[in-house]
């Protein structure tokens, strides 16, 4: 197993959202989201498309700016700092510094196509953390080994299947030794027979105690691996609880309607 030395974290919840709002122009996508993600938890976000779950995920590492409410990761506000009772916007450099600790995996993989799998994985450790190439390479190989792709290290993304690309993307995120991993529908763009490999890697991560927030349509994964689940619709949290409870005995009419379509 790879060493995923967990950075020291505070006793606070890993992610805390209080009344988070986000709008694009006049369209409000998030209408006040309240939730808490505990350390080491696998937190699943489900809901119909357009419900705001991906947007919320992107707010957590400040790829989207929130318009209202408070959002903090590991006890520190996202995108802002509280100084003297006032919110101050963070500079790009400060935002980038915080993003180092938050890994993200995208629906469309977003591997860098001009770099081999190995180069994709070592890029950020070398450029951002200024690690030596040799050390980064060694760890990258271990990570690729872990996702079952050590033999593909020299391949360019176009030479890999979707499932393989997504596993490289996971290795790339892990190379920064994040304390939190965000998964934005990681298996939605994959052929059905490739989904399993990616989910296996995610299951392994969960077993090691990685805090993960997963936007997904894989109800099986949510039920087996998830510690908490939130059902979002229309920019609000409709229902939350343990995945087994919500998925088998939904309390809310909208949850029931959604689950009857996807299960």
């Amino acid at each position: 197993m790879t060493d995923l030395a967990k950075p020291r974290t505070s006793g606070e919840p890993m992610v805390k959202a209080e009344g988070v709002r986000k709008s694009y122009g006049l369209v409000e996508v998030l209408k006040g989201i309240d939730l808490e993600v505990e350390q080491g938890e696998v937190f699943c976000l489900i809901g119909p498309s357009g419900s705001g779950k991906s947007t919320f995920l992107r707010c957590i590492n400040h790829l989207e700016k929130i318009n209202g409410g408070l959002l903090s990761v590991d006890g520190e506000l996202v995108g802002y700092a509280m100084r003297g009772g006032k919110l101050h916007e963070l500079r790009d450099r400060e935002v980038a510094l915080k993003r180092r600790d938050i890994g993200m995996v995208f629906q469309r993989f977003n591997l860098f196509p001009h770099m081999t799998a190995l180069e994709n994985v070592i890029e950020a450790p070398v450029q951002v953390k200024k690690e030596s190439r040799a050390a980064a390479k060694e760890r990258a190989m271990a990570l690729l080994e872990r996702v079952g792709l050590a033999d593909k290290a020299g391949n360019y993304p176009t030479q890999l299947s979707g499932g393989q690309q997504q596993r490289v993307a996971i290795a790339r995120a892990l190379a920064m030794k994040p304390k939190l991993m965000l998964f934005d529908e990681p298996t939605s763009a994959l052929d059905p027979e490739l989904v399993g490999d990616v989910l296996d890697v995610m299951r392994g991560l969960a077993e090691e105690g990685m805090t993960m927030i997963v936007v997904t349509h894989e109800m099986g994964f949510a039920r087996e691996v998830g510690d908490a689940l939130v059902f979002m619709d229309g920019g609000v949290v409709v229902e939350s609880g343990h995945p087994r409870d919500v998925l088998t005995d939904p309390q809310h009419e909208r949850t029931r309607a959604f689950l009857s379509k996807v299960l």
Binding site: D92, L97, N110, F112, E123, A124, V128, M176
Partner: peptide
């Protein structure tokens, strides 16, 4: 998505 992936890894502009 390329820029987003790079930003998400903590790379500067």
């Amino acid at each position: 998505g390329q820029g987003e992936a790079a930003h998400a890894l903590g790379m500067s502009r």
